[in-house]
């Protein structure tokens, strides 16, 4: 008798557990299956662009040319650029801390040197995935020498699609254009 009662008790408990599980599935289903023809708001294009831009971006650029001095000797440059973009002033503001490190080789003398730029830019978003900004501080050094401040006038511009295409002008005549940057 006692054994039968235990069996009935166990069966009843299992049935109740099953009903609770079905109820939970039904409640979850009611949320998942929900529909309402009201279209949702879409995010602000500028806010969406800002969120896409925030992060660490890196790119390289290799090119050859001739020096501007009298001998006009040939050189090649291997350039590594990184920009850490973070949210800045205002709801749409961004700031970018960029480093531009160049290994410049004189191809006629088989000698070379290293030139490095570092600066911070305040960025404003434009329409259509583009942005631009000015340097609020930039500096330069060669071969691990002392940093020297650059004159004001540094400019950053860019456009985001599947990658970031970046132009940097350091304000002293040194610049790099259309560098394909990828997010790290």
């Amino acid at each position: 008798m006692e054994e039968r009662a235990r069996m009935i008790r166990t069966t009843t408990q299992r049935a109740l557990q099953g009903m609770m599980a079905l109820l939970a599935v039904a409640i979850a289903g009611s949320v998942l299956d929900g529909q309402n023809q009201t279209p949702p708001n879409v995010p602000s294009p500028k806010i969406e662009l800002r969120d896409r831009l925030v992060g660490l971006w890196k790119g390289t650029s290799n090119y050859e040319g001739r020096f501007n001095d009298g001998a006009h000797q040939r050189y090649s440059t291997k350039e590594s650029i990184s920009c850490l973009i973070s949210k800045g002033d205002g709801p749409e503001g961004l700031s970018a801390r960029c480093n531009d490190s160049r290994q410049i080789t004189n191809l006629d003398q088989v000698s070379g040197f290293r030139r490095e730029f570092d600066g911070t830019f305040q960025i404003k978003l434009n329409g259509g995935g583009g942005f631009s900004g000015y340097a609020d501080g930039a500096q330069k050094r060669e071969d691990d020498g002392a940093w020297e401040n650059l004159p004001p006038g540094g400019v950053i511009t860019g456009r985001v699609s599947y990658q970031l295409n970046l132009d940097l002008n350091w304000g002293n005549g040194d610049s790099v254009g259309n560098v394909a940057m990828t997010k790290q």
């Binding site: 009611s30 929900g34 529909q35 949702p40 708001n41």
Partner: peptide
Amino acid sequence: IDALRGHSAWSSRIEPNIFTLIVRRAKGIE
């Protein structure tokens, strides 16, 4: 609607002011 899509911090001011008649059925269908 926006909260259901994960944007509970969004609020809308609608112009002009309009009204919605919502017909609710089972399983959250509206």
